[in-house]
Nucleic acid binder design. Structure first.
Lengths: 119, 119
DNA sequence: AAAATACTTAGCCAGATAGGTAACTATTGT
DNA sequence: ACAATAGTTACCTATCTGGCTAAGTATTTT
């Protein structure tokens, strides 16, 4: 269960940090539709190429994307199951929180029942 | 569909940035079990109180947690549906990606079929 | 009234981030 | 061969981050 999260090498710090920037989220959102070259990815962003390369670098370091170079063009693609560690963490917190709210419900129900016995 | 995401005021930049720090993720993970005071939350983290307050501040600005003060103690709790915007974004990207992979599958299948006809 | 508790605020510092320009390398097209 | 294209590398700068200490405020507790 817990070890399942360790399976995905790149850690949550880097993944969430990578996702905290709109340029980088937009790049992910582009890549879910298929691979693209550096300049294709950079085009929509009003920013010098070297600046944009920094973003690609962070996405890659976080393990979210991968690249290969053919001739002079480098092609990027989404890493398989890239987003799972983040999704798993969020889902787990959500699950624990729901569990807690259920317990709270039960607790409140008991309070009501006790009150009924008083009267 | 898209407007659903706008419902949650605090934006993804702040939410993902808030989640990119281990101290802050641990604080969320603590709060899913129920509310706690500043010093209770700070206790496990080897860090001066003012430093830790900075983390709480970011979680609060991101809309992930809320607080109320009773006398001299301030109590924090998780915001209802706090994690949904992040979960929704990730789920949507995942969905689009799966859709794309399915199309790719179909495309490959067609290639194979064509090859069969050649022979 | 004084001491202890529970934050809060103000200000400092080192390192990371997000942007930029300029100059360079490697491929491809003419 | 030369020009154009596609990245890449090397810096520079301003701002944000995450940590700190010191000092201040507001509530209990004794």
């Amino acid at each position: 269960m817990v070890s399942q999260m360790a399976k995905y090498g790149a850690d949550l710090d880097l993944i969430f940090a990578a996702l905290s920037d709109p340029t980088r989220r937009a790049t992910i959102a582009r890549l879910v539709h298929g691979p693209a070259s550096v300049s294709e990815l950079a085009a929509p962003h009003d920013m010098a190429l070297p600046s944009f390369l920094g973003h690609l670098g962070k996405l890659e370091k976080a393990g979210l994307i991968q690249s290969t170079k053919n001739g002079r063009v480098r092609s990027y693609q989404l890493t398989k199951e890239a987003l799972l560690p983040a999704q798993n963490w969020l889902a787990e917190q959500n699950r624990l929180w729901q569990t807690r709210l259920d317990q709270l419900d039960e607790y409140v129900m008991n309070l009501i029942k006790e009150k009924d016995h008083e009267s």
